[in-house]
Design a binder for these strands. Structure first.
Lengths: 230, 230
DNA sequence: GATGGAGTAGTTGTACACAAGGTTGCGAAT
DNA sequence: ATTCGCAACCTTGTGTACAACTACTCCATC
């Protein structure tokens, strides 16, 4: 696969994966190849090429005679994914870190501003998008491509499930504002560390926040009350 | 994809990937979909499904109108892959380790015996196979599936390139016996650690050996600088 | 002899028809 | 009323023809 067809493939792939992560296609939803083919003005063949990759990466599950279903994950499997994600988070500052220039620091500052604005008027969709944008900005801090690729996989797999509870899709209506507040702290801390050029610190902060994020997720799943922030 | 077709897919995928890692398909070789379809008694469609996955994972590169070529990797990219592999190696003993029972210890002992036998009569192909079997045995020491998956990816990508030099395909004829000797030490050390139930130690030993393995690879690459004949 | 260009053989990419498999709902028997 | 069976319908999986594209050969031209 090469040339123009390759570009189309990447476009469709990135778009569908984004839809899955942003919960436009929530877990359990059934996609139909014919519909997607019509939307992207092509035949089923190239669509199937994209769906195959999404299936290999664990976002979808195609069942013969039934359909292509967006996967859900049980808390046990999610724990394994999160544990690895915690470890990889720290590596951002260790493996081929790029020394951030002033422009990078500004980008992180802009991210903090967006986050502060969001905290004033919480919005699920905007939060999901901001979270994703911030992740991709973080990834620019390392040049290690395999690390980028694996981190992306773990991010997309865990974040959409986490968003499901944070956004109230699983019966938790009050968590969104709280999660935005936690996220604002993370963005703020990391932006400061980036401004100082302390990339190892960035990795450690990120690691801590990913771990806490999962702890809150588990607490909600158990039905516990969230610890009040002080 | 499900049921019988799924099993066939996995079978062909594992076989082709194994052929790539064992250098039955050395880097640069061109595969033809039609031939593979004939070998596995099917049409091009299921074959293309397998090749697509192998391409997504970086083992192959399909070029329209030309063919499907087994990838090679430059030393720079390989360094990134190795660095991440070093870090992940240690996680085997940290993330969801399984406490090895007596049977597991025996399996590692048997692996050591195979390795000692190989040291007496070096053989490239047998070494490649043993190395691969040992890797898969190591993977049984963790229950963390994402870690297993990523480790496999990094292993297959690096090992085939490393084997290329260790096996003399790149102009190094004397390295095979030496590499087998290094490998014997690693297997021996790890077998001992497993027998003691010291999984953290296993991870640390593995990490050290992966790092040293890459150091030797780089040293060979630097000392050589011979022009490619074409 | 070197060079340029059209032709040809061979390969992957796409579209589409059909096979295989599953779900759903209706109807008859109990 | 309930349950079993069957049939129509829908969706993914496979096979195949053809389009798109590349590399190579051969021959005319300079």
């Amino acid at each position: 696969m090469t040339g123009e067809g390759r570009a189309r493939f990447e476009r469709i792939y990135a778009l569908l994966r984004s839809r899955i992560c942003l919960l436009d296609y929530p877990p359990g939803v059934r996609l139909r190849e014919e519909d997607l083919a019509k939307e992207f003005e092509t035949s089923r063949t190239p669509i199937r090429r994209v769906l195959a990759r999404l299936e290999d990466e664990g976002y979808l599950r195609s069942v013969h005679g039934v359909g292509t279903i967006v996967t859900d994950i049980d808390i046990a499997s999610l724990e394994q994914v999160y544990r690895l994600r915690v470890e990889l988070s720290e590596l951002i500052g260790k493996l081929s870190p790029v020394t951030p220039d002033e422009e990078a620091a500004d980008l992180f500052g802009a991210m903090r501003a967006r986050c502060e604005a969001l905290a004033k008027s919480p919005n699920q969709r905007a939060f999901a998008q901001l979270n994703m944008d911030f992740f991709h900005l973080l990834m620019t801090l390392t040049e290690n491509e395999p690390l980028q690729e694996f981190s992306e996989r773990l991010y997309y797999q865990t974040t959409r499930i986490w968003l499901k509870t944070a956004a109230g899709l699983d019966g938790y209506e009050d968590t969104l504002a709280s999660e935005i507040d936690f996220f604002l702290r993370e963005v703020s801390d990391i932006a400061t560390a980036v401004a100082c050029g302390a990339l190892e610190t960035v990795g450690q902060i990120r690691r801590a926040h990913v771990a806490m994020s999962f702890a809150r997720l588990k607490a909600r799943a158990r039905g516990d009350a969230l610890p009040e922030d002080s």
